[in-house]
Write a protein that binds this DNA or RNA. Structure first.
Length: 503
RNA sequence: GGCGGCGUACCCAAGUGGCUAAGGGAGAGGUCUGCAAAACCUUUAUGCAGCGGUUCGAAUCCGCUCGCCGCGUCCA
């Protein structure tokens, strides 16, 4: 397996420090507001990555933190007149609500900054003792100049940094580049006792503390959004390595942004969609597919069109899975089984798929290519089904079962294809509904209309039958007449093709 | 201005030195169907922003130009 390492700027073979074991840390969220779809991308990408490592046979320890003390949390708490902890609790709950819906699994350890004050203070003391930090006016600052390799993750030289340094977080800085490890709390702000006076930790120190506590001084993978490369991860490296004298992280992974109209989605620009808003309009599985259909390091553009295409893609997969479901259990039927060429072709397609799928994910976790392989397999299998039908044969149950199992397995990794195909086509709760489709017909109403139509068809009253079909279609229900005379139905949503709009 | 990245068909998107440039969506034509739907087949980039260069060979490497974005400020 190869992974792109932000630190080296290259794709390199992934070799965990301890054979068979992977320790990974991913920066979670600061819980001061609802998550937007950009947070969801990071969560989904690393969720799937963890699943893949596990499936690959590694024993994975996945740590994802909550930043539950921070200026923004304090500001919000003051605005609402509630304690900071109340804000943190509220948005941690909201995070779980959103991520559960997206099928993001829990990390093995989900530490909170406020539970690691002792560890942070230990690190700060150690840095002071080693001369990498200095106390000034109640603050403790990291002496960047002393850490000679500072800037190597973000590829910045000291000159670049000095030129770019601005806002004085602390008036006591020796150098504008220095960053705060501990800051004095103002009256009314949450504060913890420390050797340097009451205060609270700086932003970067928490991740160093939590990562090293749960994963050790050196661990395999540290991930997060690209916007964390500088200064957050750069500072984590500086703090951690200055203290331990050992490499902090072996491989840095950073996911790209979700853009809107080619601009980064962010709170400060106000151009964001929360996960909850998105899930009001789109199926969680379609959102997942959308997020995985681009390589994790590339930017991905938020648009109605893209979500609808993701949904259309899922329709294609579920159509095949539904077909399989209907085909099974007919081994007693009249048609001869296709046990020769056709079954062999199915097995060959499955075998090839498994190789290609894994190869794609092994190549810097290329979920986009892996999904391409899934669709390629769909086409191959559809082709075999069609060939059987043309030859008046049918695939034996065992071949179908093998194909179903392959989709189950690949889908489980991606968090896709896990629903019952019937449920997928008949669900009404979420769907990229257009304004035109207003009231939804109930399944009972639809079944009644189908019976009416079957009657008309029996009389060869095609005009009535077609009228019913058209009427249902106008309400978003498409009928499919099957070979035996049965009629299936599904809900559809036309593509709008419109760019995203927001008031 | 500095640093980093991106620009592949109508849209989305893989591919980063060498088989006919994956896959999805959309469109067109066809097979099947009472009509449909689904599926399948054919079709939509002699070319990968543009111009040069390296090479037997480049979308892939190098240089320049144009366009877009990100970082340097909280940020997934």
């Amino acid at each position: 397996m190869k992974l792109y390492n932000t630190f080296t700027g290259n794709k390199e073979p992934f070799v965990p420090l301890r054979p068979g074991e992977v320790r990974m840390y991913v920066c979670g969220v600061t819980v001061y507001d609802d998550c937007h779809i950009g947070h969801a991308r990071s969560a989904v990408v690393f969720d799937v990555f963890r699943r893949y490592l596990t499936a690959r046979g590694y024993r994975v320890t996945y740590v994802r933190n909550f930043t539950d003390i921070d200026d923004k949390i304090i500001r919000r708490a003051q605005a609402e007149g509630v304690p900071a902890e109340a804000i943190a609790e509220r948005y941690i709950a909201a995070y779980y609500r959103d991520m559960d819906r997206l099928g993001v699994q829990r990390a093995d350890v989900e530490p909170r900054a406020t539970e690691h004050l002792a560890e942070m203070q230990t690190i700060i003391s150690g840095l002071l003792a080693r001369g990498y930090a200095y106390a000034a006016g109640g603050d403790v600052l990291f002496r960047v100049k002393k850490f000679s390799t500072y800037g190597s993750l973000s590829k910045r030289s000291a000159e670049d940094l000095s030129a770019g340094a601005r806002v004085e977080v602390s008036p006591h800085k020796e150098d504008p580049m220095d960053f705060v490890l501990w800051k004095t709390s103002k009256p009314g702000e949450p504060a913890w006792d420390s050797p340097w006076g009451p205060g609270r930790p700086g932003w970067h120190i928490e991740c160093s503390a939590m990562a090293m506590k749960h994963l050790g001084e050196t661990f395999d993978i540290h991930g997060g959004g690209m916007d964390l490369i500088f200064p957050h991860h750069e500072n984590e490296i500086a703090q951690s390595e200055a203290l331990t004298g050992r490499p902090f992280v072996r491989c840095w992974m950073h996911n790209g942004f979700v853009n809107i109209d080619r601009e980064k989605m962010s709170k400060s620009l106000g151009n964001f969609f929360t996960v909850a808003e998105v899930l009001e309009r789109y199926d969680p599985e379609a959102v997942r597919l959308f997020l995985l259909s681009t390589h994790y390091r590339s930017p991905v553009d938020y648009s109605d069109r893209n979500f609808e295409e993701a949904r259309a893609g899922l329709d294609r997969v579920y159509t095949l899975l539904r077909e399989f479901k209907g085909m099974r259990g007919r081994d007693e039927g009249a048609a001869p089984m296709a046990i020769g060429e056709r079954e062999a072709a199915v097995d060959e397609a499955l075998r090839q798929f498994q190789m290609d799928f894994r190869e794609a994910l092994d190549d810097d976790f290329n979920t986009a290519a892996a999904l391409g392989q899934c669709f390629d397999l769909v086409r191959h299998l559809n082709r075999e089904i069609a060939a059987c039908r043309a030859a008046d044969q049918r695939l034996p149950d065992r071949a179908i079962a093998r194909a179903q199992a392959v989709f189950q397995e690949a889908g489980r990794l991606l968090g896709l294809f896990q629903q019952d195909p019937e449920a997928w086509f008949k669900k009404e709760a979420v769907a990229s509904r257009t304004e035109a489709t207003t009231a939804l017909l109930s399944p009972e109403e639809i079944e009644t209309r189908i019976r009416d139509r079957a009657e008309a068809r029996g009389r060869k009253d095609w005009a009535t039958a077609d009228a019913i079909r058209r009427a249902l279609e106008a309400q978003g229900v498409v009928l499919e007449d099957k070979a035996g005379g049965a009629t299936e139905w599904k809900r559809v949503t036309p593509l709008t093709g419109d760019p995203p709009r927001r008031a």
